[in-house]
Amino acid sequence: MSKLSEQDIEKRLLHLPEWDYYDDAIHAEFEFENFKDCFSAMSRIAFECEALNHHPDWSNTYNVLTISLSTHSEHGVTDKDFALAKAIEAIVEPEDED
């Protein structure tokens, strides 16, 4: 797995508007209604992280979850980071079912 170019990262971020690129990582912050909802999302995300064998740098303060994704072995952002970001998006912002 190789590090993505800054141009490729910016192009991919067009599909992930909640995410920003800086400091060789992609970052997002999600606000929930309360701590329980935030922690519940973190628990669901943890299962995805294990399934993908890729783990975020993250923190939570009450109802806010802050996430940074990079592939440490590549010293930057790779396909693994975008795969995890998409999985996180599906958990924290599920599409409305008709």
Rank of each mutant, 00 (worst) to 15 (best):
D20Q: 14
F35P: 07
D57E: 15
I45E: 04
E95M: 10
A46D: 05
D81Y: 03
P17Y: 09
F82T: 02
V64H: 06
M1D: 08
E31I: 15
A46Y: 04
S59H: 07
D24F: 06
F47K: 13
T78D: 03
L14R: 12
L52C: 02
D98S: 11
T71C: 00
R44S: 07
P94Y: 04
V77S: 01
S73F: 11
F82N: 01
S68F: 08
H72S: 13
S43V: 10
N63S: 10
K86V: 07
Y21K: 04
H54D: 03
T66C: 08
E48N: 06
H72C: 09
T71H: 01
D24I: 03
L13A: 05
S68L: 03
H15K: 13
Y62F: 13
T61R: 07
H27Q: 13
K3G: 06
P17N: 07
E48L: 04
L84I: 02
A41K: 11
E50G: 09
A28M: 07
F47T: 15
F35D: 08
Y21N: 04
E31L: 12
L16P: 00
V92L: 00
K86A: 14
V64D: 02
T61E: 09
Y21G: 02
M42T: 09
I9D: 02
R12G: 00
L52T: 03
L84W: 03
A28K: 07
A46T: 05
N34P: 05
S5T: 13
T71A: 04
C49N: 09
E33H: 10
E97L: 10
